[in-house]
Design a protein around this nucleic acid. Structure first.
Length: 259
DNA sequence: ATGGTTGGTCGCCAA
């Protein structure tokens, strides 16, 4: 397989942002578009809006939902992860293109460190790690992209003091991510640039204009993927109000280019 | 920066 562009974008409702998604495709022409928080059941997926693209969807009403839109038809597909503590939540879909596995993930948010959802976040990431360990090999090309809802380090937080101990920024979450990476995954954005751009801005308090940002959307790759890495960029314009259309998602797309 | 914006739906529900 030659050069591949894979994009990860938490779109926060595909139906609310169909026009943006189409404009994004025209602008960036990704080979593989991984969406999170599509919030649409599979039977209602608007595949007619993406002519010529193959939809690999795993969605539900109202919450969650992931989808992979690809120029090539996948050779193999997986929906959900084994041992998922919340299997009713559609948070993972994977597709293999030749020898490259692309895992599109919407990690449990976790809400707050003292909430039940925080414990579920740990268990969900544990199930993901077990899945990698049992069904994949770090010697093969495996690319994980998505909304991880974890900042890998304080460099990924606009104001580390203000976020200390808060959801997305706790030592526990960073430890779970490190355990995942210990299987054999490189943070491709960090490999590509010394100071990776952030990807998420809260809708509230004018956070985008004030630069209150986090890097929680990640691309992690095994060594064969890291060896093929050409570039990782963030389409920050996509987060701007009125830059393309009104009503941006609160996440900007992460663009991963492989040789 | 500890309030309040957004989407889908009518759950104050999740983010």
């Amino acid at each position: 397989m030659g050069a591949v562009r894979v994009v990860s974008w938490n779109i926060n409702s595909l139906r609310a942002r169909l026009g943006r998604a189409q404009a994004f495709m025209a602008r960036h022409d990704p080979d593989v578009l991984c969406l999170q928080e599509t919030k649409v059941p599979d039977a209602e997926f608007p595949q007619l809006a993406f002519p010529g693209l193959h939809p690999t969807v795993h969605g539900q009403k109202t919450y969650n939902g992931v989808a992979i839109l690809s120029k090539e038809r996948p050779d193999e597909v997986r929906k959900g992860i084994p041992g998922d503590p919340v299997p009713e939540q559609t948070r993972a879909v994977a597709a293999r293109f030749d020898d490259l596995w692309v895992l599109d993930l919407y990690v449990v948010n976790g809400q707050a460190p003292d909430s039940d959802k925080f414990a579920i976040k740990e268990r969900w990431l544990g199930a993901l790690r077990d899945w990698l360990t049992t069904e994949f090999d770090p010697k093969d090309p495996v690319l994980l992209v998505g909304d991880f809802n974890i900042t890998p380090s304080d460099a990924d937080v606009h104001d580390p003091a203000r976020w200390a101990g808060k959801i997305h920024c706790t030592p526990e979450e960073r430890g779970w991510l490190a355990e995942l990476q210990a299987w054999g995954l490189t943070d491709l954005h960090k490999q590509a640039v010394p100071e990776p751009e952030h990807t998420w801005w809260d809708y509230r308090m004018g956070a985008f204009a004030r630069g209150w940002s986090l890097r929680i959307d990640l691309a992690l790759g095994t060594a064969p993927v890291a060896d093929r890495l050409a570039a990782v960029t963030v389409d920050r314009d996509e987060r701007k109000q009125g830059e393309h259309e009104e009503k941006p998602s609160d996440h900007a797309p992460l663009i991963v280019d492989l040789h």
